[in-house]
Simulated assay, not measured.
Amino acid sequence: MSVPDAGFDDAVLYRLKFARRLPTGLSELTGPMHGVVELPLHVVWSGLRAFDLDQPRQRMGLYRTVLAEGTREDLCGFLNAELLFSLWPVLRTLTGPSVRDVWEEAFPQLRERAAA
């Protein structure tokens, strides 16, 4: 009898962690499109916590951080569906494969946007 590959189990659990946080639809992402957003400590515990959405690099940093560390409530409250859709072709390259795959499987329009 073979022992299951622990790496595979870790990858499955990691993907499940992100899948459980997903909103049921992109329309639930009603966060701001402009201005300064301060993330709570449970999302970003060191470094920059306030992000100016009108600055492209800071906007990308906020989205990357919230996708990786945010709860479902954080995703819905800090991310905006329109911005996520516009950022996705680049943002998907800045996230880990688990985040990218989970979001693109749940929301095929993101995968289509990246391919366009």
Results as ranks from 00 to 15, higher is better:
Glu28Lys: 09
Met60His: 09
Ala81His: 14
Gln58Pro: 00
Gly77His: 13
Arg111Gly: 11
Arg113Cys: 05
Leu83Met: 09
Ala115Trp: 07
Pro23His: 00
Trp88Thr: 05
Asp10Asn: 07
Pro56Asp: 12
Val37Ser: 08
Trp45Leu: 05
Cys76Ser: 11
Asn80Met: 02
Pro40His: 05
Tyr14Phe: 11
Gly96Phe: 02
Arg49Gly: 08
Leu39Pro: 02
Ala81Ser: 15
Phe51Ala: 00
Leu13Gly: 12
Phe51Tyr: 12
Ala114Asn: 08
Pro97Asn: 10
Asp74Pro: 03
Val3Ala: 12
Thr30Tyr: 01
Asp101Tyr: 00
Leu39Ser: 00
Leu22Gly: 06
Asp10Ala: 12
Glu105Met: 14
Glu104Ile: 11
Leu79Tyr: 02
Gly7Thr: 14
Ala6Ile: 11
Leu83Asn: 04
Gly47Asn: 10
Ala114His: 08
Leu53Trp: 06
Trp45Glu: 09
Val36Asn: 08
Ala11Cys: 06
Val90Glu: 13
Thr24Cys: 11
Glu28Asp: 10
Ala116Asp: 12
Tyr63His: 05
Val43Cys: 03
Leu62Tyr: 02
Ala11Val: 01
Leu84Arg: 03
Pro89Met: 08
Pro89Cys: 05
Phe18Trp: 08
Arg15Gly: 12
Thr65Lys: 06
Trp103Thr: 03
Pro4Cys: 04
Trp88Leu: 07
Val44Glu: 04
Ser46Arg: 11
Phe107Ala: 05
Val66Phe: 08
Val99Tyr: 03
Leu29Ser: 05
Thr95Asn: 03
Val66Cys: 08
Glu104Tyr: 09
Ala19Lys: 12
Arg111Asp: 14
Val102Gln: 04
Tyr63Trp: 05
Val37Phe: 08
Asn80Val: 03
Glu112His: 11
Glu73Met: 10
Glu73Gly: 11
Phe85Lys: 01
Leu91Arg: 08
Ala106Pro: 05
Phe85Thr: 04
Gly35Phe: 10
Ala115Leu: 15
Leu84Phe: 01
Ala6Leu: 13
Phe107Asn: 04
Gly25Lys: 13
Glu82Leu: 13
Asn80Tyr: 01
Tyr63Gln: 04
Glu112Lys: 13
Leu87Val: 09
Pro89Trp: 06
Thr30Glu: 13
Leu48Phe: 02
Arg92Ile: 02
Leu16His: 11
Asp54Asn: 15
Arg49His: 14
Leu39Thr: 01
His42Asn: 14
Ser46Gly: 00
